[in-house]
Simulated scan of single mutants.
Amino acid sequence: MESRKVKSVSSFQMPLHYPRYTRKDYQDMPEWKLDRLLADYGLSTQGDLAQKRNFAMGAFLWPDHCRHDPNPKPF
């Protein structure tokens, strides 16, 4: 049997750093910057500005209860 190599082309490359923006940063971010951020992570840039902001905040912001506390309180 003849073996064939299949060439695969992908343009997505995972960015090295997780975005470190606050909720206010996303709320004030211009549309072009949101588009770039979403595209860098291979996420959709479809929708209006409010939809993009909500999507970015949902994708990149951690809920407050999940944030690392540098001074945890004992139980």
Rank of each mutant, 00 (worst) to 15 (best):
Arg20Ile: 04
Tyr21Asn: 10
Tyr26Val: 00
Phe55Ser: 05
Ala59Pro: 04
Gln51Ser: 11
Glu31Phe: 01
Met29Leu: 12
Asp48Cys: 07
Pro30Phe: 01
Gly42Phe: 06
Thr22Val: 04
Lys24Met: 06
Cys66Glu: 14
Asn71Glu: 10
Pro15Tyr: 11
Arg23Phe: 04
His17Asn: 06
Gln51Asn: 03
Leu37Lys: 10
Arg67Pro: 01
Asp35Phe: 04
Pro70Arg: 03
Tyr21His: 15
Lys52Glu: 02
Lys5Ile: 15
Met14Arg: 13
Pro63Asn: 11
Trp32Met: 10
Pro74Asn: 04
Thr45Val: 11
Thr45Pro: 06
Ser3Tyr: 15
Arg23Tyr: 07
Lys73Leu: 13
Asn54Tyr: 03
Thr45Leu: 02
Arg23Val: 00
His17Val: 10
Pro70Trp: 02
Trp32Ala: 13
Leu43Tyr: 08
Glu31Ala: 07
Pro72Asp: 02
Trp32Phe: 13
Glu31Ile: 09
Leu49Cys: 00
Met29Thr: 06
Ser10Pro: 00
Asp25Val: 06
Trp32Val: 12
His65Ala: 12
Cys66Thr: 10
Ala56Thr: 04
Asp69Met: 06
Lys73Asn: 07
Asp64Trp: 08
Asp48Thr: 00
Phe75Val: 14
Gln13Val: 14
Thr22Lys: 02
Val6Gly: 05
Glu2Lys: 15
Ser44Ile: 01
Met1Ile: 14
Pro63Ile: 06
Met29Arg: 12
Asp25Ser: 13
Arg53Trp: 05
Tyr21Leu: 13
Lys33Ile: 10
Leu34Cys: 11
Gln51Trp: 01
Arg4Leu: 14
Asp48Met: 03
Asn54Asp: 13
Met14Glu: 12
Tyr18Glu: 05
Asn54His: 07
Tyr26Asn: 03
Met14Trp: 08
Phe55Val: 01
Val6Met: 15
Ala50Phe: 00
Gln13Trp: 10
Lys73Ser: 08
Arg53Gln: 14
Gln46Asp: 12
Arg67Leu: 15
Lys7His: 05
Lys52Val: 02
Leu16Met: 08
Glu31Ser: 08
Asp48Pro: 00
Asp40Thr: 03
Pro63Met: 07
Gly42Arg: 02
Gly47His: 04
Phe12Ser: 05
Lys7Glu: 11
Ser11His: 01
